[in-house]
Structure formats: C-alpha cells, structure tokens
C-alpha cells in the first residue's frame, strides 16, 4: 500500500496521502466514466449503422424511413456516453 501511495504521489505531485488518494479517485472516475461510456456507446453506434447498411441493402425502397429512425437511434445511443462522462465530471468537480 505504501509503495502504491508513493507512486501516486509521484504522479500527482502532492505530499498529503489523503489528497493524493482523492486526486487519484477523481482521475479514475473521469477515466472510467468517459472511457467505459465511450466503449459502450461506440459498440452501440457501430451496431446501429451496421444494421442500417444491412437493411438498406436488403430493402433500398425503405431508405428514407430507415434514415430517420437511424438518427433517432444514433442520438439515443450516443447520449449514453454522455451520462458516463457527466457523472465522471461531477466526481471531478463537485466531489
């Protein structure tokens, strides 16, 4: 544990262990919130556009209808990334 704290205080350039742990926790919060959120949203957006390509090639006459639903799905999926990011930012600035 002591070595871990030493490494952390080296990274964050702070003397007080409690403050170091707090800074590390905030950094982890932003990283996990933004990073894992981006992973999930990225997979979801990939699935949506993949399915859109698939269905437009199957039924080209449905293209207009599919396009409008596609943007709805895209924005709803993309928003999930921001839920994670915002909770990370809340931890960074308000905690």
């Amino acid at each position: 544990m002591n070595t871990f704290m030493t490494i952390l205080s080296f990274i964050f350039a702070q003397e007080d262990p409690a403050e170091t742990a707090s800074a590390a926790g905030k950094a982890i919060a932003v990283g996990v919130g933004g990073g894992l959120g981006a992973v999930g949203a990225g997979v979801g957006i990939g699935i949506i556009f993949g399915k859109v390509i698939e269905s437009v090639t199957r039924q080209p006459e449905m293209r207009d209808e599919i396009t409008s639903i596609q943007w709805l799905g895209f924005a709803l999926t993309e928003a999930c990334f921001f839920y994670g990011l915002v909770s990370g930012l809340i931890a960074l600035f308000l905690a």
């Binding site: 993309e78 928003a79 921001f82 990011l85």
Partner: peptide, 13 residues
C-alpha cells in the same frame, strides 16, 4: 433526467 442531460451533456462536451 435523460431528456435534459442528453441535450446538456452533448452541448457541454
């Protein structure tokens, strides 16, 4: 919550 945070977070980010 989702309606407001979606718009807010998209624009802020």
């Amino acid at each position: 919550l989702s309606l407001s945070v979606r718009l807010f977070a998209n624009m802020l980010a």
